[in-house]
Design a binder for these strands. Sequence first.
DNA 1: GAAATAGTGTCTTTGAGACAATATATG
DNA 2: CATATATTGTCTCAAAGACACTATTTC
Lengths: 237, 237
Amino acid sequence: MLVTTSDTDYDPAAFPPFAVTVDLVILTVRPPRLDVLLLQRAEEPFARQWALPGGFVGPDQDLIEAARGKLEQKTGVSVETAHLEQLATFGHPDRDPRMRVVSVAWLALLADPPDPVAGIDALDSAWVDIDGLDRSTLAFDHHLILEAGIERARNRIEYTTLATRFLADEFTIAELRSVYETLWGVTLDPANFHRKVNASQGFVTATGRSVSHGKGRPAKTYAAGPAEYLEPPVRRP
Amino acid sequence: MLVTTSDTDYDPAAFPPFAVTVDLVILTVRPPRLDVLLLQRAEEPFARQWALPGGFVGPDQDLIEAARGKLEQKTGVSVETAHLEQLATFGHPDRDPRMRVVSVAWLALLADPPDPVAGIDALDSAWVDIDGLDRSTLAFDHHLILEAGIERARNRIEYTTLATRFLADEFTIAELRSVYETLWGVTLDPANFHRKVNASQGFVTATGRSVSHGKGRPAKTYAAGPAEYLEPPVRRP
DNA sequence: GAAATAGTGTCTTTGAGACAATATATG
DNA sequence: CATATATTGTCTCAAAGACACTATTTC
């Protein structure tokens, strides 16, 4: 933290100021779509371009509090039911044309969100399908952040139980499977997947109820189990 | 990035300044020790306590450049031969008693480093065994950062070829095994490990040479292969 | 009953681990 | 040769995947 060879290094106040922001990659799964929440900017720079939701960190605000606040403000979803984790920090000197801004990016995973809350300062806000989105048109370096978020989510569901965060409290194995299929862009064998999920201790717990989706045999429903990590993992094909 | 409900949010310069630093978890393996590079602070706050190497990010300096500079300055090792990756960002409002400081932490993995370069501003610097270190005595929130770094390293060697970064250009399978054993605190079956490493495409490539360690059959030597990820992974027991 | 989806059985292949056996050096 | 370490062989078990088959609903 402190040790260097120049005297000025000892005094934090002697250093030029940085602005610190949070940016959020908020993902939800609506098969066959993987959607990210984007806002259309009203102001320069990058006016009218789409961007990730984010904002400045308050002077006495913890980083995760800033992220949590933005998440709840933009989605209307309590962070209790969502997953929020730190992703990475982006701080290239030229990433914001106005001044030096370091952005701490966060990844949020949500189940079945309501329509986004339009801020008075954004032209529009929407859940945007990951496919069919030209990421290079995003404001700032948000294409990098989005890329990192998607990649993180794809990896996380392999070793953790986070796939259930994309679903309601009660869900079927087929719905859980569709989360994997949507994120990974593959199709999985229903039979093998069913067995694997039930074999992974604490991944899901049966509710004892069933639900009918119109056609076919009704599916038993499950709730997220107590486990945080999958053992063995659900490996990506 | 921009959208909120208050007007001041639009102007980055209107926001109170943060200081931004980098802190480094620099690890090396010297079986049976896993060592981290620490500095003993000369100045308040936390004078005489041990801390991770770090420093302020320059006004026009990219984050990774700041980390790279510190790494080379403190270890005398070129970043070419080391691995450096971003770890996480720590920004609790009270983590530095002087002012608001957000620290971007980095993880570095090194092979067989020289003695640390003592800065004129640190009382001492040393490679410290992870075991036998009372992490709670570290300055700032560096116990959290160190914890995150160790955990990251332990996970990385499971799915990536990074274990070879702890070794010289030429190494034996037994030396590679000792990296895993040291980081994971386990003993692995030499026979099974040998086969697994050779079965993992691109993990290591034979040099055609051998080396004798005094007793026993001489071991063939290998160099790091072209692969970055292990397929299949070397799973932690 | 036909169609559709949920869930089970079974077989094959692959990788992990235990451990015996062989290879090649030093003293 | 005794000993130590490296490397290969072999066997067993667990998990993954292909796919046939059964179960239970709607129309």
